[in-house]
Computed example of a mutant assay.
Amino acid sequence: MKVTPLSLSEVLLITPPRFEDSRGFFSETYNVQRMKDAGISETFVQDNQSLSRQKGVVRGLHCQLAPYAQGKLVRVTRGSIWDVAVDARTGSPTYGQWAGAELSASNWSQLWIPAGFLHGFVTLEENTEVQYKCTALYNKASERSVRWDCKEIGIDWPVDPEQVVLSEKDLASPSFSAAKDWFSYTG
């Protein structure tokens, strides 16, 4: 398993090995001990899966507040996405900064996004399936979001803004200034 910290060192790009032969492939996509060795000791309590039928679907930027704050381990099983994490921990030296990586069924990489970070992605292909493990259960009252194209953050999305497909909820999301004090940096 290859583990690479991104520009936000807590956000990790993880690529499990794939063993291929004429029949197809085998890959161990999650192993609790290997994750602990990589610095991820959280317990996962919920698995989610989404299908986006169109290229340009943006989901995010989302999070949940404590005590339901979620760390996420994200992977793509069909298609590809540009996956993004934004540090929303007030007092963090990287507060408001973002890191992104392409995840695809081809590159087989996963992204670890700790609690205290906003998460979002855009689909780069039609019929893209995303699966992710969460460290806390979904709680609607704790759910928060920030505009995907917020100028305060300045994410470099690889998509034409005119062709983005958004949910009603994401269309109504506030700017990043609303996230002040959602999370605290503990150093």
Rank of each mutant, 00 (worst) to 15 (best):
Q131A: 14
R78W: 01
P16L: 02
V146K: 04
T90P: 14
T135V: 08
F176Y: 02
R59H: 00
E28L: 09
R89S: 04
K151I: 06
A141Q: 15
S109V: 06
T90A: 13
V122I: 07
A85V: 00
V11C: 10
V146T: 00
T135L: 05
L65T: 09
L137M: 13
H119W: 07
C63I: 01
K169H: 05
Y95C: 05
S27A: 13
S80Y: 03
D87K: 00
E102N: 03
N48S: 15
W182N: 11
R75V: 01
T94F: 00
D149I: 06
E125V: 00
D87S: 01
S175D: 13
T15Y: 12
Q46K: 06
K133T: 10
E42V: 13
R78E: 11
N31Y: 09
D83R: 07
F25C: 09
D181P: 04
S167P: 05
Q33H: 15
K140L: 14
R144N: 10
R59Q: 04
W148L: 10
G79D: 01
L124S: 09
I155F: 06
I40Y: 01
L51C: 10
T123I: 10
C134S: 09
P5L: 00
A85P: 03
E168C: 13
T186C: 08
F44G: 02
R59L: 02
Q33G: 08
